[in-house]
Amino acid sequence: MTELMERFVAVPDALSASPLFAIGLTLSAFFAGSWLFTRMGKPLWMPPVVLSAVILAAVIAFLSVDYLRYQEGSRWITLLLGPATVALGIPLYQQIHHIRALWIPIVVTLPLAATLAAVYAVVIAWAMGATPEVLASLAPKSVTAPIAIGITEQLGGSVPLLMGGLLITGVVATLFVDLLAKWLPVEDERILGFALGLNGHAIGTARAFEISHTAGAFASLGMGLTGVFTALMLPLVFRL
């Protein structure tokens, strides 16, 4: 009987050798998070990605699966981030007439706003005594994950720390856009979408697609341009 129990306890660890285990876990947490999100009445302060990630972390800890092994298996999922980034070009094209009409404000705002997004964070952290490694991990906090990882590695930052920063930035950027839209007020979906993508990368973009297709297209545009611009600018600035 105890032998059976022992074998039973060893199951998660043995299964985790296959990437399908990580895929199954991630998918389950994704659906559980989405279900919970709907049950909670779709709260703005708690995006589905946070709910799902918390559930996933809890399950990984509970089953005592080795995190690095999970990370290895989950690469099959993360792999799709590449084609998914390419896929953002389609809504971008479908909304190109909106973007053409607004190209002057976009060209003026983007370099300034994308620079400020990095500068505010780095200056605040530096003033409060953060180490260079932490600064390098925070600088690309508004950039979409696949590009940001490349930037942080180039600057000598920590990738897990960056991912944490990205997550928090995405969530609070989404909250702040919703809040400030009411305070300022800004009602134009195009501006809101652009701000969501520029500051809140993929998380902001996901939120923008909830607002409307137009907002989503502007978010994709803001995210894409911020990524390209920051990837070119930050390595140059950090060298100084």
């Binding site: 990580a22 991630t26 998918l27 947490a29 994704f30 995006p47 589905p48 990605v49 946070v50 799902s52 990630a53 996933l56 999970y70 990370q71 989950s74 690469r75 999922i77 993360t78 799709l80 981030l81 998914a84 994950a145 991912m163 990205l166 997550l167 993929a202 998380i203 996901a206």
Partner: peptide, 8 residues
Amino acid sequence: VLLIMPGV
């Protein structure tokens, strides 16, 4: 959302 979960 699913695609960024493992990183998060």
